[in-house]
Nucleic acid binder design. Structure first.
Lengths: 207, 207, 207, 207
DNA sequence: CATGAATGAGGTTTCATTCAT
DNA sequence: AATGAATGAAACCTCATTCAT
């Protein structure tokens, strides 16, 4: 039990705070250093560059997210329930971590360098877990079998990211969980196994 | 028959190209001016600032997008068909306008200033059209009636933006229309009127 | 009686107004043009440059100043009276022409280019008139004879310019004529013929 | 024995030189930096802006001026002698510091921002010293008592500033101390206690 | 004479990063 | 490991002036 955090942790903690309030450009190394109680140069002992420091943030946060998510899904009774709980926790997590939400959704998520970075790999467990849940649902029932889990995940994540992003852009003025129930139904509607029945007009695709 | 475009159009065209290759801060006014064949100062005759120029891009592009989209939807036979065509055209448009796609999806869409700008209002017609299509589908059949059109639109747009964004981040290495058919089914699954039937477990929401 | 002024006069008039509110750099040709009701380019039909236009202002104002000054001095009964009236009118003129005062005192008076310009010659009549008044005083009595008029003029003008300049820098918040009477006495003390008596210590100059 | 000055002093020294040759806007930070042997950015470690640097110049120079002036006045035998020495030293100082003279007289002295700046306060000791000298003279004799010292100071300073300013504007082509003796007499004439006797015509002021 | 669209040079300032101590 | 003084590149924008009409 390290009562006093390591210097590296101090820096990361300061970075989360500063990058949460300002965007990447506006945030300054000096401000982070001051908040962390170290000299500017010290940051470069632990991180190659400002961007590396920035991209290090999810490394820690993602772990916390996944742990708590797992605990939250533990006693789900079936896959739809699990997905509903996942949606709920996803929204809840960003609701209580708006600083991180801003960095992640408005900056990292659309950054090519981030996409190529080691840090973005920290989402893999979550992405894989999603696939597993969906595939389990396809096996056990509750999730449509006519489409690859990868596509269903796109609908699920796309919808969620969209909702969080709009909320951030609007200044976080309303409750992010506001539409949780209906959102769940809309998403589950798309990936549930009742869907995928014959839909009129699908034979003649445009062009 | 305007062989030579107006100076303002020349500038916008150059801006789309340059902002498409580099991000907002990497792109330089001088480069845009050179490409447009005008002096740096001339740009400021037409646009108040670099950001105003940047934000002006969608103003033009959105019009073209809507016009062509409408033509494309003209002879849809029913709402699901219309939605499929819309999805197809949406992906097709960004496939053939990758420069614009990069600016719009990776920069403007996550920019708070843009969200507040006049320019972002140019999407309203499209957003309204989407609602109308969905509501028409709710009336005529083909779109589930148990959820507000606004939420269904979130699923639709979220999924599409997600797909385009991932494609851009991966370097546009595959065909954006690759998964069109299955994407359509996944999305339509979520908003079609066959969905929304009883889904197991929806009675006990988490928390 | 020209009801409508010539275009050149319109421009000068506008220039006085604009240069009076803003300093040389801040004042813009376009603003002057707008105020004069002409196109930017038209100004260059009448003035070689912004600076030439600026320097043209005293050409007109100085005439008015001299005319009114002369009228004011007409029925002075002796030279000290004349000098007092001159001091009074000098301060009065800048008090009611603060715009012009700012341009003249804070910009032109310390500008090397102006000093070399044709325009600065327009002060010659005034400078000569001062010498004449002082020399007349030396002849007729009332002005000390032991010093060249040129030096007495330095004391007179230096004191007046100092007073006006300080007034402008302090924001013209008090009445410029406030100290007129005492100022007059102080200045007249220095150049009057009662002065110049033996002053102790003048034999051994420093160094 | 500080052979090598501090970095801040190096910069100030370079600034005096550069601002002395060119006016404020013509002078470039890069040129100052080069002359001082530092990087452009280093200047901003010590001065908030170009203007702050400019306005910092008198802070140092004024101290030197006052110190040397005091030494120069030390063994004056009476107030008129003291004033003569002061006039002499004032002119001498600007004669041997023409760079500083140009900045101070032609730019700062007529700059409203400077008048409001902290830097302009550095003249206060000198201004106060002047008042004290004059008031001492009023007590001990040698300075007329019928006018407030503040007004006598205006005549003194106005005359001196006028002389230095004209000298600068004429290109410093003659010896600034040329007219020192007669100038002294003219000024002392105005403030000496032999002055202020009855001057004809003072009863009927104009207007 | 008049226009006004187009020009294009020019410079302050920031701040991530380095490196001698 | 830690420091923090020093670095220096990089670019937006203004606006007086021009000149084709």
């Amino acid at each position: 039990m390290p009562r006093k955090k390591t210097k590296k942790q101090q820096i990361i903690q300061a970075a989360i705070e500063v990058f949460g309030k300002k965007n990447f450009r506006e945030a300054g190394i000096s401000e982070i250093a001051r908040l962390a109680g170290v000299a500017d140069g010290t940051i470069y002992e632990y991180f190659k560059s400002k961007q590396h420091l920035f991209f290090s943030i999810p490394l820690e946060r993602t772990k916390v997210f996944c742990q708590q998510l797992n605990r939250h899904l533990e006693d789900s009774k079936d896959t739809p329930d699990k997905i509903r709980r996942l949606i709920w926790y996803y929204l809840y997590f960003f609701k209580i971590n708006p600083d991180y939400a801003r960095s992640l959704m408005l900056e990292m998520r659309v950054n090519k360098d981030f996409a190529k970075s080691r840090s973005s790999k920290s989402f893999s467990p979550f992405m894989k877990a999603l696939i597993e849940i969906l595939e389990q649902g396809q096996k056990e029932g509750g999730v449509r079998r006519d489409l690859p889990a990868r596509l269903l995940r796109q609908v699920l994540l796309g919808s969620l990211e969209y909702v969080v992003t709009r909320w951030l852009l609007k200044g976080e003025k309303y409750d992010l969980l506001r539409d949780y129930e209906e959102m769940s139904e809309a998403i589950l509607g798309g990936i549930g196994d009742h869907a995928g029945g014959r839909v009129p007009g699908q034979e003649d695709l445009p062009r």
